[in-house]
């Protein structure tokens, strides 16, 4: 395996920007009308953070778990893996993150206390707004076909961003940040290398 060290990450980005975003277009066509479910997920998250029902923490954790597993299976493994030879490893990472959220948010029930830091709340809310509301419009804003939109719970980037926001709002354990931060780095490198 020593040869692996001679590779750079960009050596594995062997697809064009056009091919990458077309994956989202076909994915969106294939999974319709699950987008409605994803929007309901987003609305539930906003509701729980606003109204703080007793089940808020577990509810949010459950939605995140379902989202991470779905993205791992339906997008990363079924779709992205077609053009990206390491996307199966990405999918495994997403499953692992889902497991961590199960352990932390559902078994340990640690999503209970919202952050009291005004800065933390502001940053978390801002990221959450970007992930759940703004992100789907990016494709259209930057001039790509609107059909290539990326939605929370269905596509990796907005799902990871929303998760980071929720981790910030609930002041979650550092361990839960590792995979989302790695993903953001990978996603940034991919965007740069394409």
């Amino acid at each position: 395996m020593g040869e692996l060290a001679s590779y750079r990450l960009s050596d594995f980005i062997l697809f064009s920007q056009a091919a990458y975003y077309r994956q989202f277009e076909f994915y969106n066509q294939a999974i319709w009308p699950l987008h409605i479910v994803a929007i309901i997920f987003a609305l539930i998250i906003f509701y729980t953070l606003w109204k703080k029902p007793f089940w808020a923490g577990r509810g949010v954790a459950l939605l995140l778990v379902v989202s991470w597993i779905w993205v791992a299976w339906a997008f990363l493994y079924q779709r992205f893996y077609q053009i990206h030879v390491v996307a199966d490893w990405y999918a495994l990472g997403f499953i692992l993150q889902a497991g961590l959220i199960v352990w932390y948010g559902l078994i340990k029930k640690r999503f209970t206390q919202l952050s009291e830091s005004r800065l933390g709340v502001k940053i978390g809310t801002g990221i959450l707004f970007v992930a759940l509301v703004f992100y789907p419009f990016i494709a259209f804003i930057v001039g790509r076909s609107w059909t290539q939109f990326e939605l929370f719970a269905l596509s990796p980037d907005p799902t990871v961003l929303a998760t980071l926001a929720i981790l910030l709002l609930y002041k979650a354990s550092v361990a839960l940040y590792v995979i989302p931060v790695i993903w953001i780095l990978l996603s940034a490198i991919t965007q740069y290398a394409m």
């Binding site: 062997l14 697809f15 064009s16 091919a19 077309r22 994956q23 076909f26 779709r79 077609q82 053009i83």
Partner: peptide, 13 residues
């Protein structure tokens, strides 16, 4: 064919 032919199942690609 590196990068250029990696179009997945895209019929147009």
């Amino acid at each position: 064919s590196s990068r250029t032919f990696n179009v997945g199942n895209d019929p147009l690609g």
